[in-house]
Design a protein around this nucleic acid. Structure first.
Lengths: 143, 143
DNA sequence: AATAATAGTTGACTTAGTCAACTATATTTT
DNA sequence: AAAATATAGTTGACTAAGTCAACTATTATT
């Protein structure tokens, strides 16, 4: 560490965490053959009833064409299917398939495993709060 | 929240945080005109004495050609310059410019500002530990 | 001196997003 | 009820940013 650095430890920590658990993290093996945005899309589908393509775009901060494309990728991988909404003819509902549920369970356990490894490297007196705190950070971010 | 979900709250929190502070986060405005990997590259340069293109590749988990390209982008934006190493003729040292130092200071303060906003949305009794804990998570990740 | 290893670059390619123009349906206004 | 507007989604053309493989140049090993 040299002191020419102009970045605060806080920013550096945030970036380290974001990078590690983010798209390029987990040795590129975060989620089997799905990318991180695809993972988030699947999560969105699980959490929104009759999730539309539009909803996915919002969750990811993508344009609507970007949303269309990510959904189409998930369809071609067999993780979701599209169905016309019965309530609104414009809307395309996206539903997860069995295969999609499997892959997401898989990704989840990989995340948890990586997290265990992380925890084990932290000072024992700090290990207790980590999960609670991460959850409450995430909750604050969603507000 | 519906209970069809198969993703644990922990994984979801990690993803939320990674996505928010990651490449697409901070409203796409995380770092002025630099991307997140570019930010990490700059940070790497600040922290490694006589930083090579190779070092940057390692820090980012990119191939060497990817490293070349990210450095070239930073050069063309005026944030770094390349200089031949005096010790090893194969090595290309990457040094930050004044303009590079400015942009990184800028990005840093944007991160801190966003973090302040985050903190203010968290329950007061949890606010105290956050910074310490994030730092120690990042530290564990770097091990 | 020959061989192997390392650092970096480049061309061809792929992936994953954007924008703008488009279709189809639903909602609002007059 | 008709016209105008808004919303949902798709598509073609494009761009950004990475990979791989082949290459050059230098250094280290045998």
């Amino acid at each position: 560490m040299n002191n020419k650095s102009t970045i605060s430890e806080l920013s550096r920590s945030l970036i380290t965490i974001a990078w590690y658990f983010g798209p390029k993290g987990l040795d590129g093996q975060c989620c089997g053959d799905i990318t991180m945005p695809e993972f988030i899309a699947l999560d969105t589908i699980l959490n929104i009833h009759n999730c539309s393509v539009h909803d996915i775009g919002i969750a990811l901060g993508f344009t609507k064409s970007g949303a269309t494309r990510i959904v189409n990728r998930l369809v071609s991988k067999g993780y979701v299917r599209k169905e016309a909404s019965s309530e609104d003819g414009r809307v395309c509902c996206v539903a997860i398939t069995k295969k999609g549920e499997t892959i997401i369970k898989d990704a989840d356990s990989r995340y948890r495993e990586k997290f265990e490894q992380l925890i084990s490297k932290m000072p024992p007196n700090q290990q207790g709060n980590v999960v609670t705190l991460l959850n409450s950070i995430a909750q604050a971010l969603r507000k």
